[in-house]
Design a protein around this nucleic acid. Structure first.
Lengths: 146, 146
DNA sequence: TTAGTACCTCAACCTAACTTGAGGTCAACA
DNA sequence: TGTTGACCTCAAGTTAGGTTGAGGTACTAA
């Protein structure tokens, strides 16, 4: 595999992440590497896209676990094509739309609800907005608990 | 203060949070209580609104630290009025608008960017979208690092 | 040959927002 | 009387997404 030519440092600089982050992603199964004679990691060029996609997805509020799950739909045996990546992004786009919709509903009921007397679990639109989507990938906060 | 009549259990049930969460919020300075003869917490009725507002703000992606800071603008000496609460919500509404705008920009560049070859730190609109707001309150992820 | 990087592993630490558990108090009810 | 149930404190554990540090290896350049 003379294909594997990127070192961790190079990938880190190119993608704007720390070397330790790449180790971490590898440990979590989000990226893969081979080793050279001196036991150093060597990456195929597509790792750059993977890391970029991870960063982009995180900005959307998607967790590493979900990103890993999405990556599972990429082909194992060959380098992912643009079409493969586009499929991923399409999936996230609708998730993003739901999240945006949720935040818009929240915004629209916000002043009314915080300012009025209705802020109770039973009646308030804020409590009763569909927050299933918002709960995903928002870190440790269990948003849809209540 | 015969005003302080709510027990933790009552507040917890009414607001849909765990008792331990109320202890936690108190420890973090987000809510306050007095004690009865048996050393049990007793809350003023406005704690209900505070907890509700905390939950609502969290759904917007606002951290407890920011919520605490916002609560600092509420009057200490008297029970907050609707006008006080409205001021809070107005502040968060614009924050929410910025967050929504950010996610919309992200969505609009998503398919193009993940699917095309531009996903690099220098050229990509995703990387260069203004993500200052998105970084706030999104958990431990340092979004605006790169 | 020696210094300087870049790299390696593994374990421990960090923050946010809580939860869980151990061990103890207090009041009401049968 | 005793046993529930609600409450108390304090310490430790949990998850996500990493970072930091110690101790060691490997290539490069003077």
């Amino acid at each position: 595999m003379s294909d594997d030519k990127w070192s961790v440092g190079q990938v880190a600089r190119r993608c704007g992440v720390a070397v330790s982050t790449l180790h971490f992603y590898e440990q979590k199964g989000l990226i893969r590497s081979s080793r050279n004679n001196g036991n150093q990691r060597r990456y195929k060029p597509d790792v750059l896209r993977r890391v970029s996609v991870i960063k982009a997805a995180q900005k959307m509020g998607i967790s590493l676990a979900s990103i890993k799950a999405a990556f599972a739909s990429l082909p194992e045996e060959r380098t992912p094509t643009m079409a493969d990546w586009r499929k991923l992004s399409a999936q996230w786009q609708s998730e993003l739309n739901e999240r945006i919709g949720y935040l818009e509903r929240l915004r629209d009921s916000l002043t009314g609800c915080i300012g009025c007397g209705c802020l109770s679990m039973k009646n308030c639109p804020i409590y009763n907005a569909d927050d299933r989507m918002a709960a995903k990938g928002s870190g440790p906060v269990l948003l849809d608990q209540g």
